[in-house]
Design a protein around this nucleic acid. Structure first.
Lengths: 85, 85, 85, 85
DNA sequence: GTTGATCTTATTTCTC
DNA sequence: GAGAAATAAGATCAAC
């Protein structure tokens, strides 16, 4: 086994370690942001809002944005094709 | 929400608007962090690492942490039960 | 489902009916088992045990199993990577 | 610590052990049934059905059943109240 | 009766 | 792109 590709140099191991550390740090961050979102919903609920409805609104707005982006993309494709961009 | 159906005061509407804005901002942040995680995996893959194996390692380490946390919780339950906490 | 919109043949409808029946039968079974689990906890509680602590123990044991499974998986990934499996 | 309530007799410990074993066995069973349900959905999907729609149907039928049960309950209450049952 | 915990469903993400 | 797995969301239920 010693002479297989599984033997890593110190530099390689270090690279791996750093990668895993960064991934774990980012995963933590991601969780924190997710918790913050949850907090905002909780606040709104405490204020008397129907969070389920708000979630739908957020989803719709996201779809709208995606649609707008899509249209922008098509537009820019056309502009490039016509030499106008 | 209120007895008065869906009639909202200006202040209430403003509260709602701000909440949605914050949620959308945070969702964007969350997506950025998710993308960064993806990038790290891509880098490691480009460097020659087996990302599937790395994902397994990350998962295992997460399970380890969950287990340690659970043990702490059990310990604290035990200490409370015995009157030592 | 098909180009012909929602027009189903008798055989297809029968297939659907049977599937739904099986799902409902299984859902019932699942509920029965869930109720049995609840019963066991109730018994233990009646006997004087702290069910919260027991739930923690059950959870910890489950985490243990998950971790062992994950380690097996990593091992097998490693064996495959080194050409030993 | 030895003289606190945390000292269990052999019989008590055995009771606890058996309870946990039963819970774990039942949890396994429950998971198996859940997997079987998943299998049926997978089959229906492979057959060309829209499983999301089927899930809605199943949910509606369950609500219907609950409603019917509710009506039966009210009816029987009335029958008992009037001395007819 | 309201929070907190658990369980289930639904959506998203990853792997093959 | 289909199937599997992870994450997130919602519903449900018990405890205080």
């Amino acid at each position: 086994m010693e002479d297989t590709a599984t033997v890593l140099t110190e530099a390689t191991k270090e690279k791996l370690r750093q990668g895993i550390t960064r991934i774990e740090r980012l995963a933590e961050e991601k969780q924190e942001v997710a918790d913050q979102i949850k907090d905002v919903y909780a606040e709104l609920k405490a204020f008397g809002f129907d969070t389920k409805a708000i979630r739908q609104v957020v989803k719709l707005r996201k779809l709208d944005r995606a649609e707008r982006d899509e249209m922008d993309m098509i537009l820019s494709t056309y502009l490039i094709a016509t030499g106008d961009a």
